[in-house]
Design a protein around this nucleic acid. Structure first.
Lengths: 186, 186
DNA sequence: ATTAAAAATGTCACAATTGTCACATTTAAT
DNA sequence: ATTAAATGTGACAATTGTGACATTTTTAAT
């Protein structure tokens, strides 16, 4: 639960400390007060939300602290491993989730930049995963890469629900690398 | 009677340890001292009361105590709703997750005190959910109540994997209430 | 364009709170 | 029992909040 002081925010925004305090007092910037004399603290996420709401630039120092990772959701271990190999060769850290439950837990745990999702997992509705994720504002920046052997119509539907890209099986390592690189650099 | 050290509180509040000790000394935060040199300890409930009194954010890890809730994992909406009714009558807040992915996300989001889990969900391996959850230290205090129409052997296996209680379908509202009350009061 | 009023931001000094540091001591872990 | 990690303390440094007022920027009307 990282927080920022009014002074730090003042510096980030290149603005006077007095002004930051006024933003907080007027409710424009959500914050809370320490019990002492009421020194202000702001959650980083609230500050970022504030910056985005006002189209203000986000300081590099606040852009996702952890090194960005990829979450591979697939119940076929060999395929998952293969995707992981490609990711590693491209220089990215990744984690494998077998099944929906693990995927949900690991998604919130690792806050990955990209989630690759196998649509044709037995007994797991990939569409609802996409749909549910997209309705959570917390994951609005997550890139969803759908992987599937299904037909064109199915991939289209995934895109409609909010997937960012699709890869039809079988796909080349090169294609996968391209997609990963594209989104990891965003 | 879980307690927190001054250091843990400092971390939760993203504040210096010195400051936490001052809060305690000035009576703003209720605590007590160990016999040794007087190292400080604070009851979780006192800490939460303190946070609420000052409109400070409550760390995820403490949500299960601050706002105890029940996560109902079931893909049969009628049954899920019925469990929710029982929970509400007993005075507990609850959320329904349809499918494993939602369950995973909502588990980390709400940090519930209890998770009811339908073992016989099509295409979702309830056992692996139990197993995976139990291996995460984060959820070591989560109570897992398995609900199923399966035979005794299956329920036994769930317990072996780490479930805390089982309810065989059909179950009475009374039995469910008993189980919920037992764990919610822990 | 010009101008005046309104709103937002900056300045300054002082007091209160919070952070830092080194070191002794206690807890926790092995 | 031994060792590593966490905690308490005092003195002092740095940051922060506040009120009153000066400046700047925005808005609206002419």
């Amino acid at each position: 639960m990282k927080t920022l002081t009014s002074g730090e925010i003042a510096e980030y925004c290149d603005v006077n400390l007095r002004t930051v305090i006024r933003w907080i007092e007027s409710g424009k910037l959500k914050g809370f007060k320490l019990p002492g004399r009421g020194n202000n603290r702001v959650l980083v996420e609230d500050f970022i939300e504030f910056l985005e709401r006002h189209d203000m630039p986000i300081p590099d120092a606040l852009k996702s602290t952890a090194n960005p990772s990829i979450l591979i959701v697939d119940d076929e271990m060999p395929l998952a491993k293969s995707i992981q190999r490609v990711a590693r060769r491209a220089g990215y850290e990744s984690h494998i989730a077998i099944g929906g439950f693990q995927a949900g837990i690991m998604l919130s745990q690792y806050q990955p930049k990209i989630m690759t999702l196998d649509l044709s997992m037995p007994g797991m509705d990939g569409y609802s995963v996409i749909d549910f994720t997209r309705k959570q504002s917390r994951y609005k920046d997550l890139k969803i890469v759908v992987i599937s052997a299904l037909d064109h119509i199915s991939l289209e539907r995934a895109l409609d629900l909010g997937a960012d890209a699709t890869l039809q099986k079988p796909f080349s390592n090169h294609d996968l690398t391209m997609v990963l690189e594209q989104y990891m650099s965003m």
